[in-house]
Amino acid sequence: MTEQILTVSATTEGPVTVLSAAGEIDHDSRQSLEDAAEAALQDGSRSLVLDLGAVAFCDSGGLSLFVDLHKRTTTRGGRLHLASVQPAVTAVLLATNLDRLLPVHATVGEAVAAARPTG
């Protein structure tokens, strides 16, 4: 498939990188998000904010990437935050109970505020 079904852009502010995804996250498309997250962590980001405002679909391939990024950020003292989660993706998070693991925020601003180190 040549058509890009997931595009990702990254903005870094200090120890927090915001990854804005647009499209569908599944087993095939998740690589671009994985690469962007990998690059942010390599560059020293401790926490990641995943802006899912333009993501209408996410399957277990996407969920396992979220869990993976959760593990990798927590081991370095940070966290993965999800922001602007759309209804279909919220449904998947609730169905798998992964909303208990991954903090979800209404807006990217709130997520960034939560991700920023306090003190």
Binding site: V67, T96, N97, L98, R100, L101
Partner: peptide, 12 residues
């Protein structure tokens, strides 16, 4: 209510 998927430790 249940728990998280197997492979993600969930004491609940």
């Amino acid at each position: 209510t249940g728990r998280m998927p197997l492979g993600i430790t969930d004491p609940s």
